[in-house]
Lab assay of single mutants.
Amino acid sequence: EPELVFKVRVRTKDGRELEIEVSAEDLEKLLEALPDIEEVEIEEVEP
């Protein structure tokens, strides 16, 4: 069974934007590691 992958769009407080694809596990780590995120948009990517 393929692992869930999420497309994550992040905007930081200083206005930088970042778009990455991460696994569910990595997404959890990412959110814990970035306390200064202003906006996060997450969508599931079809395998």
Rank of each mutant, 00 (worst) to 15 (best):
V22N: 00
D26A: 08
D14I: 01
K7Y: 01
E32H: 08
V22I: 08
K7I: 13
P2F: 09
D26Y: 07
D36C: 10
D14E: 04
I42A: 03
F6C: 14
I42M: 05
L18V: 08
E38I: 13
E17I: 15
R11Q: 03
R16A: 06
K7V: 10
I42D: 02
L18W: 14
K7G: 02
L34I: 12
T12L: 15
G15W: 01
L34M: 10
L4C: 14
D26S: 07
E39G: 09
V8N: 00
E38K: 06
R11I: 07
K13C: 13
E19S: 09
G15R: 02
I20Q: 02
L4M: 05
F6H: 15
D14L: 03
V10E: 00
E17P: 02
P2Q: 08
V5M: 11
L34Y: 11
E38L: 13
S23M: 07
S23I: 07
R9E: 01
K29Q: 07
L30P: 00
L27S: 00
D26F: 08
V10T: 01
E39V: 15
E25G: 11
R9T: 06
E1D: 12
E19N: 10
V22G: 04
A24V: 08
E1Q: 12
E17C: 15
I20Y: 13
D26G: 09
S23H: 08
L27M: 04
V8Q: 00
I42C: 13
E19A: 06
L31N: 01
L18E: 03
R11T: 06
K29G: 06
E41T: 13
D14K: 03
V10Q: 00
L31F: 06
D14T: 04
E17L: 15
D26N: 08
D36T: 04
L18Q: 04
E3Q: 06
K13P: 04
K13S: 06
E39D: 09
P47R: 13
L34S: 04
E44N: 09
R16E: 04
V45G: 06
L18P: 00
V45L: 12
E46R: 14
E46H: 12
E17W: 15
E28S: 09
R9Q: 01
E3S: 05
E38G: 08
F6K: 15
A24Y: 10
E39T: 13
P2Y: 09
L4P: 15
L18I: 11
E41Q: 10
R9C: 09
L30H: 02
T12H: 06
R9D: 01
E38M: 12
K29M: 08
D26R: 05
R11F: 02
E41G: 04
E43V: 14
E44S: 12
E46A: 11
P47H: 10
D14A: 04
V40M: 10
P35S: 13
V45S: 07
T12C: 08
L4D: 03
P47F: 07
L4F: 11
K29P: 02
V40A: 04
L30S: 02
L4G: 04
E41I: 14
R11M: 03
E25H: 12
V22S: 02
P35G: 15
E19T: 14
V22R: 00
L30T: 04
R11A: 02
L31Q: 02
E19K: 07
V5E: 05
D14H: 04
E25R: 14
E1N: 14
I37G: 06
T12V: 04
V8E: 04
L18T: 04
A33Y: 09
S23Q: 05
V22Y: 01
L34F: 13
V45Q: 06
E19V: 14
E32F: 08
V22A: 04
E32K: 12
G15Y: 01
V5C: 14
P35C: 14
V8K: 00
E44M: 13
L4S: 03
L4H: 08
L27Q: 00
E46S: 12
F6E: 13
E43K: 10
G15N: 02
E3D: 10
V45W: 09
P2W: 08
P35Y: 13
R16W: 11
I42W: 12
D26I: 05
E38Y: 13
E3I: 04
L34W: 12
E3G: 06
L30G: 01
E32W: 08
L18R: 04
I37Y: 14
E39C: 13
G15I: 00
L30I: 08
E39W: 15
T12R: 04
A33F: 10
V22M: 07
L18N: 01
R11L: 04
P35R: 15
V8I: 06
E21F: 15
E28F: 13
P47A: 09
E19W: 15
R11G: 01
S23R: 12
P2D: 06
I42T: 03
E19R: 11
E41R: 09
V22C: 11
P2K: 09
S23G: 08
R16L: 09
A24F: 11
A33D: 08
L34R: 04
E32L: 12
E43A: 10
V10W: 10
E17F: 14
K29W: 09
E38P: 03
